Amino acid sequence: MSVNPASPSFQLFGDSTQSVNYRRDPYNYITQLFSDQMPAIHTGLFNVHLNQGIIVQPHWHTNVNELVFVISGEAMTSVFNPFTQSIMTYHLKPGQASQFPKGWFHWIVALRNNTHFLTIFDQPKPDIVFGSDFLRFLPKEIANRAYCVNESAYANAITPINQSTILGPPPGCDQNGGITNQPYHSTQPSPTTHPYLDLSSPPYPY
């Protein structure tokens, strides 16, 4: 978009809190600031607030590089390096950042309550491919043909994934597979004993 700095409507201010991208609950939500809200910029960001144990689900971007910058709390970022066939994981504290190159599969997990970080892009409109969509639209017959995965087991495993997922786990997840009728509580054990994140013996250097 071409912006004329001499135009009377030209402005250099934007408020990400006024544009909600996704709200899971009052404690876990994403707001945004992109060129639609502030045309003078040629980049954009998501403003992310998460409680401990909540994950920005696995996904990738086809057209942008992404920088994650932690403001408060702690987060673990992980990205799959397609060249070394390995996962690169970083434990971020306030003031620290990590990057996701364009096209690389990645995810982010909050390690403490009230974690706040920005995800900043080098283009104004990032494309997003959700891992949840890949899983739920992959036919069970193709999973079997491609990976020798049992068709019925695959179909059963992905049953809870009935829509695009941005923040997980979904409300009502019993953390042992499947969805219950009970609300999901985001209070989790300390990071060293988190059921998904055994940080006492991290598999990757920070």
Rank of each mutant, 00 (worst) to 15 (best):
P139F: 05
Q99P: 01
N51C: 06
T119V: 14
G103H: 05
L45I: 05
A153K: 13
F117D: 05
S19L: 10
L167T: 03
G177F: 05
N181H: 09
N51D: 15
A146W: 03
S200H: 07
E66C: 01
A6R: 10
I54C: 08
K93D: 02
V56H: 06
A146P: 01
I87K: 04
I71E: 12
V3W: 01
N63I: 06
S190D: 11
G178M: 03
V109P: 00
N156W: 06
N28R: 08
H194S: 01
N47C: 12
P58Q: 02
N81K: 06
Q175G: 00
T193L: 05
L50M: 15
A153W: 09
K140S: 15
S98Q: 03
P8L: 06
S2F: 10
Y184L: 12
D15A: 13
A146G: 01
M88R: 12
L33M: 15
D15Q: 11
D174Y: 01
F137D: 03
M1A: 13
G172H: 07
I128N: 14
Q188R: 14
V68I: 15
F34M: 12
Q123Y: 07
F34S: 09
P195G: 04
G95P: 03
V20Q: 13
S72W: 04
P94D: 10
V70A: 07
N181P: 00
G44A: 09
Y154I: 05
R136V: 07
E151P: 00
T62G: 15
A97Y: 08
S86A: 14
S200E: 08
S2P: 01
N176A: 11
V109M: 10
T62W: 02
I128P: 00
V3I: 14
G73I: 04
L92H: 03
I71H: 11
P82D: 06
F10N: 03
N81F: 07
F34Y: 14
P39Q: 10
F105G: 00
F134Q: 12
E74Q: 14
Q163K: 13
L118H: 12
A75W: 02
R136E: 07
G73R: 04
F13Q: 12
F134H: 04
Q18K: 15
Y22D: 00
L199Q: 03
P203K: 06
N65T: 13
M38T: 09
H59C: 01
I166R: 01
D127H: 13
G53D: 08
G172M: 06
T193H: 11
D36V: 12
S86E: 14
F46K: 02
